[in-house]
């Protein structure tokens, strides 16, 4: 239950000013998908609550987290839809939640090669569910703090990301020093969605967050 506590705050915070008509802020809906145990819940929680959750359990069906951010002076709600990793759930359950999504985040576990090998099927499935083909997609390799256990080399992942025209981010939802990095990933995505222009990753978000140089965030251009 604790997991979702951050949401209440963001809901009320975005509820509108005193006495004024509540201004409806724009909503960006982002779906987060990938194999079981790659860290989808931890990543979304990190972004929405600002910290790594103490205990997470298997996500059953779809969970939802939200955070309001300011981008270029505009208040924007970022909705993250956190999905179950087990295959049987995505087949008949999750498609409802692909509706009207603005962006897709594919997640794999850098210490688990199988989760990387599953990516093509996730990408294929995503294609089937999404009506528009130009929806921004990014690839996130999680758990980069577990250096000695890394199974997916960065160059292999980068090559894969290039093939599918996605930017790649390697990060850790757990490592406290990477907080800004997880933040930056989602903020970069939000900027991209706001601008509707090709994402320029060299350009840091306006709120002053700078991408952490170590471990080197590997990112490619959106072309």
């Amino acid at each position: 239950m604790e997991l979702e506590s951050s949401l209440e705050a963001s809901f009320t915070a975005s509820g509108g000013g005193a006495g004024l008509l509540p201004t409806r802020s724009r909503i960006f809906k982002i779906i987060v998908i990938g194999d079981s145990n790659v860290g989808k819940t931890c990543l979304t929680y990190r972004f929405c609550a600002g910290r790594f959750p103490d205990r997470t359990e298997a996500t059953i069906g779809v969970d939802f987290r939200e955070r309001a951010v300011d981008i270029d002076g505009e208040r924007i709600k970022i909705q993250l839809w956190d999905t179950a990793g087990q295959e049987r759930f995505r087949k008949s359950m999750v498609q409802h939640y692909y509706r009207n999504v603005h962006a897709v985040v594919f997640v794999y576990d850098m210490t688990n090669m199988a989760s990387f090998h599953s990516l093509p099927s996730w990408i294929e499935e995503c294609k089937q569910h999404l009506l528009a083909s130009d929806i921004p997609r990014i690839l996130v390799g999680n758990k980069c703090d577990l250096r000695s256990a890394i199974q997916v080399p960065t160059d292999v992942a980068q090559k894969f990301a290039d093939t599918h025209s996605m930017p790649l981010f390697e990060t850790s939802a757990k490592n406290p020093n990477d907080n800004d990095h997880v933040e930056a990933i989602f903020m970069t995505l939000a900027h991209k969605l706001k601008s509707h222009k090709p994402l320029m990753l060299s350009q840091p978000p306006d709120n002053g967050i700078v991408l952490k140089p170590e471990p080197k965030p590997t990112m490619s251009c959106w072309c």
Partner: peptide, 21 residues
């Protein structure tokens, strides 16, 4: 609201064991 029914999925398939503390 087009809310769907997935909010009740874990209730159903865990007999509420997943959501009640």
């Amino acid at each position: 609201a087009e809310v769907g029914t997935i909010f009740a999925l874990s209730w159903l398939i865990t007999w509420f064991g997943h959501v009640l503390s």
